[in-house]
């Protein structure tokens, strides 16, 4: 492999951008395909799209080039939680076990205290001050808004939708969510975007306690990650809703 190519690959990984290293076995020729590249003219375009979705590397046969190996690099999934609440306390170890990098944002310092959350990066600030300066949202990020408080939840929800987060969930009853949809519509969110918000949050397992709700939320995030329609999420990031 060319050293310059290796450096580029490592740069893409460090920046949490998906890419595929394409190696022709017969010739040893290699190139890097970025997720944001327009590959529509490439005979392997469909293969690339499918592999960005699945994250799986593998060998394919290309008529022109013979055997071609696609080494897929997609960032590890991340979970951004709005609200340092009881559910978030239960969610912290669950997310870690499931392999998610989790961070919590909550401006209420009484909630967002290191004593309550010793094991997870905590931002005791307004989401507006953290996103995207300290926490950038992308299509490999799940966002769960758990405060119930529009002042805290609304901004990150809008940013999560416009950033193409693969999962966007919000705590609250159907009634709460109906008024949320009204507010976010006024703020410029489209109907299609709002339909992506999972609310009431979590898979329906009759969760009652905060810990059970955390399990339901994690299950729903995994479901979206593995079975969801990430393919329909446009890349690169849309900037329409600033």
């Amino acid at each position: 492999m060319d050293l310059a190519l290796l450096k580029q690959l490592n740069r893409e990984r460090a920046a949490r951008r998906g890419c595929i290293l394409v190696s022709e076995i017969a010739t040893g020729a290699q190139r890097l395909v970025l997720e944001t590249d327009d590959t529509s003219a490439d005979p392997l375009a469909e293969e690339f799209a499918a592999r960005f979705r699945s994250g799986k590397s593998g060998m394919v046969s290309d008529e022109a080039d013979g055997q071609v190996f696609l080494n897929v690099s997609v960032p590890p999934p991340r979970l951004v939680v709005i609200g340092a609440v009881h559910i978030s306390q239960a969610l912290t170890p669950i997310a870690a076990i499931a392999g998610f990098d989790m961070e919590i944002i909550d401006p209420r310092t009484a909630f967002a205290s290191p004593e309550r959350f010793p094991d997870v990066p905590l931002h005791a600030e307004w989401p507006e001050d953290v996103i995207p300066r300290k926490v950038s949202l992308d299509r490999y990020t799940a966002l769960a808004a758990l405060t119930h408080d529009p002042k805290i939840d609304d901004y990150p929800l809008i940013k999560a939708l416009s950033s193409g987060c693969f999962y966007v969930g919000a705590l609250g009853s159907r009634k709460t969510h109906a008024s949320r949809v009204e507010r976010l519509t006024k703020a410029g969110a489209s109907e299609a975007d709002l339909a992506r918000i999972k609310a009431p949050i979590g898979v329906n397992i009759g969760a009652a306690s905060p810990a059970e709700i955390a399990v339901a939320v994690m299950a729903q995030i995994i479901e979206e990650l593995r079975k969801g329609a990430r393919a329909s999420v446009p890349a690169p990031v849309r900037e329409a809703m600033a």
Binding site: L6, N71, P76
Partner: peptide, 26 residues
């Protein structure tokens, strides 16, 4: 807690930067 190919590729780049001969097996 880390993607398991990330480190190895970073190591490969680091070793090259240090002037070592480097082979990559996949």
């Amino acid at each position: 807690t880390v993607p398991d190919t990330l480190d190895v590729l970073a190591v490969a780049e680091g070793w090259r930067a240090a002037g070592r001969d480097v082979a990559l097996a996949t």
